[in-house]
């Protein structure tokens, strides 16, 4: 006899995600891409020396998920995140189901935050699964060996493993900001393709901004830069500055995006369906 809450909406949003193809498309890609990468590592002698940890991919499997985090930040993880976050509101518009759920006993704020939590959960699960598979595949191919930190010190395999876990956790900060932007576009455009592509464009354009002469100084405040903040964990001693900056810079993107989305969602006319 409980009355419904944000968590009721959240549970059912997850249930809906479990029944949708695009969920598995995202998770499938999150698994396949690191697998393909690891297979390439196993088959080819060379290594991507120009990225951090690239040179260690044959020495320790722990480096594989870290290299994936680096490569993945350009478009792969933003895409997987946006695939669901960009669809989670627009999908209701396309199915005409917004009117169906908004005439029950949950208010629009509850519906909105239920969706936010579900989109965040999905992004989290996708990144964790992807990194998990990268790790396991990496260990199989390159072994469970000590890792060389960015400061050149060798850290034990066990310590390296927990650093990889912590890196994935820190990586979630900008990922959730991407999810928030995708959610905003989903709410505003009411079209999931537009929201997914829009999010991707946004994240790619941010990476190009710094090329424009005179705008290089913006680098630390771009969302794309925050995808590298976990590297602070892999210094000895740990450099917390980039992580702290990632937290507030990402919030500065995420909170306004969510607020805009919320206001639009609360005020909009539900005319479709």
């Amino acid at each position: 006899m409980r009355s419904p809450s944000v968590f009721t909406v959240y549970r059912w949003e997850l249930r809906k995600l479990r029944a949708q193809k695009r969920t598995y498309l995202g998770i499938g890609a999150a698994i396949l891409v690191p697998m393909a990468f690891t297979i390439a590592v196993a088959l080819r002698p060379g290594e991507p020396r120009d990225v951090p940890f690239g040179r260690y991919i044959h020495q320790t499997g722990l480096s594989i998920p870290l290299v994936m985090l680096l490569f993945g930040s350009i478009w792969f993880f933003p895409l997987i995140t946006a695939l669901v976050a960009g669809d989670i509101v627009a999908n209701e518009d396309q199915n005409g189901t917004l009117k169906t759920i908004l005439t029950r006993s949950v208010d629009r704020t509850q519906v909105f935050f239920g969706k936010v939590l579900a989109a965040f959960t999905y992004a989290f699960i996708a990144v964790v699964i992807s990194s998990g598979f990268a790790l396991v595949a990496g260990l199989i191919v390159s072994g469970y060996n000590p890792l060389t930190s960015l400061s050149g010190q060798l850290v034990s395999a066990n310590e390296g493993l927990s650093l990889v876990g912590a890196s994935v956790a820190v990586y979630m900060i900008p990922i959730l900001a991407i999810a928030s932007i995708a959610l905003m576009l989903s709410t505003v455009t009411r079209n999931s393709a537009a929201a997914v592509v829009g999010t991707l464009m946004f994240s790619l354009i941010l990476q190009l901004v710094v090329i424009i002469p005179g705008l290089g100084g913006l680098q630390p405040y771009l969302l794309s830069t925050q995808f590298n903040s976990w590297q602070g964990l892999l210094r000895t001693p740990i450099d917390w500055d980039p992580i702290i900056r990632a937290a507030w810079v990402s919030s500065a993107y995420a909170i306004p995006a969510l607020l805009i989305a919320l206001v639009v969602f609360l005020r909009r006319d539900v005319t479709g369906g």
Binding site: T8, W12, G96, G273
Partner: peptide
């Protein structure tokens, strides 16, 4: 207009979802 439901869920699950949102 026409009632709309989640096409990828069966009727019972659609109703379970709505019942959850109704509570009580």
């Amino acid at each position: 207009e026409a009632p709309r439901f989640y096409p990828y869920l069966d009727a019972k699950t659609n109703l379970e979802l709505l019942a959850a949102l109704d509570g009580d």
